[in-house]
C-alpha cells in the first residue's frame, strides 16, 4: 500500500520530462518531421536552466532560457532538413550529439552542484483523499504540463490549426496545392518541439532532480521518442504512456525500499527494457500503426 502511495504521488512528476518532450515531438512528427535530436535538445535545455537557477535567475527565467535554447537548436535542425533537404535521421543524430556536447561543455564547472527545486501545490480537498491524495500535490510545472496536454489534445481534436498540422503530415502535396506553406508550417512545428524539449530538460535538471551531472538526461529523450510511437501519435495515449514510464522509474525505488533485493543495474535498465518490450508489442499490431501513423514521416517535401 505504501509503495502504491509512493508511486501515485511521484508518478506525475517523474512523467513530466517524458511528457513535455513527447508532446513536442508529437507536434513535429504530426507534420511529417522526425527529429531524433530530442535527447540532445533536452540535455542543452537542462544545462542552460540549471546554470540560470544556480546563479539566482529563478525558475521562470530558467525555463524561458532552456526553451529558447531548445528552439534555436531545433531551428538549426529545421534549416538543415527542411531548408537544405538533409537526411532527417542523420541530421537528428547530429543535433543530438551537438546538444549533448554543448550541455557537457556548459555544465562542466557545475558538476555535482545542487539548486532548490519548486514547492508543491496541493489541491484543497482532493489532496486529503486516502491513497490517491498524493496525486493532487504537485509542483506548478506538473500542473502546467497537464494543461498543455489538454490544450494540445484539444488543438488536434477541434481546431483548424490541428487539422492543418495533420494535413501537412498526411498529404503535403495536397496541403501545398490548396495554398498552405508546407515547409513554413513544418519549421514552426519543429521549433515548437524544440521549445518543449528544452522545457523537459529544464524540468529534469532544476525541479525533478535539481542536481547537475553530465548525462543526467540518461536516455529520457529517446524514451520520449518511443512514447510517440507507443501513443500511436495520439495525445491521450502519449499521456498515459508517460505516466507508465513515470511509474516504472519509481517502481524500482519502491521495490528497493520494500526490501526486494535486485541489482541496481537491473533497476536502472528497467525503463529501457520496458521501452523495448512495449515497442515490440505495439509495433507488431500493424493495424494500430497504419490507422494513426503519419504518412509522410521523415520524407522531405519539395514544392
Amino acid at each position: 500500500m505504501i509503495a502504491l502511495q509512493f508511486i501515485l504521488s511521484g508518478m506525475l512528476a517523474a512523467a513530466t520530462p517524458f511528457l513535455l518532450a513527447a508532446l513536442g515531438e508529437l507536434v513535429s512528427e504530426r507534420t511529417g518531421v522526425l527529429n531524433l535530436g530530442v535527447e540532445g535538445v533536452m540535455a542543452l535545455g537542462a544545462a542552460i536552466a540549471f546554470i540560470i537557477v544556480y546563479h539566482g535567475g529563478g525558475h521562470v527565467l530558467a525555463f524561458a532560457g532552456a526553451g529558447l535554447a531548445g528552439l534555436l537548436l531545433s531551428l538549426l535542425f529545421a534549416f538543415a532538413t527542411l531548408g537544405l533537404q538533409a537526411n532527417q535521421v542523420a541530421a537528428g543524430l547530429a543535433i543530438g550529439i551537438l546538444g549533448q556536447g554543448l550541455s557537457a561543455l556548459f555544465g562542466k564547472t557545475y558538476e555535482s552542484l545542487t539548486v532548490k527545486g519548486l514547492p508543491k501545490l496541493a489541491i484543497p480537498g482532493l489532496s486529503d483523499l486516502p491513497v490517491f491524495g498524493g496525486l493532487f500535490v504537485q509542483d506548478s510545472v506538473v500542473w502546467l504540463s497537464l494543461a498543455a496536454t489538454l490544450a494540445i489534445w484539444a488543438t488536434f481534436a477541434f481546431t483548424k490549426t490541428g487539422l492543418l498540422l495533420r494535413a501537412v503530415g498526411e498529404n503535403p502535396k495536397a496541403a501545398h496545392s490548396i495554398g498552405y506553406p508546407v515547409n513554413a508550417i513544418r519549421v514552426a512545428a519543429v521549433a515548437f518541439g524544440g521549445l518543449m524539449s528544452g522545457f523537459a530538460g529544464a524540468y529534469a535538471a532544476t525541479v525533478y532532480t535539481p542536481l547537475w551531472a553530465d548525462g543526467m538526461i540518461a536516455g529520457r529523450g529517446w524514451i520520449a521518442l518511443a512514447l510517440v510511437v507507443f501513443g500511436t501519435w495520439l495525445t491521450a495515449r502519449i499521456f498515459l504512456g508517460a505516466c507508465l514510464f513515470g511509474a516504472v522509474s519509481l517502481a524500482g525505488l519502491a521495490a528497493q525500499a520494500g526490501g526486494v533485493e535486485l541489482p541496481s543495474q537491473l533497476l536502472a535498465s528497467l525503463p529501457y527494457l520496458v521501452t523495448i518490450i512495449v515497442l515490440g508489442v505495439i509495433s507488431s499490431n500493424r493495424r494500430l500503426l497504419k490507422l494513426n501513423g503519419v504518412a509522410s514521416l521523415g520524407e522531405p517535401f519539395k514544392p
Binding site: A226, G280, S284, R286
Partner: peptide, 17 residues
C-alpha cells in the same frame, strides 16, 4: 523483422542496457 519495431529506438535502448 518479426515485430516491426523501429530499429533506431530498439538498438539505442539496447546500448543503454
Amino acid at each position: 523483422v518479426r515485430l516491426r519495431a523501429n530499429e533506431i529506438l530498439v538498438s539505442l535502448m539496447l546500448s543503454l542496457v
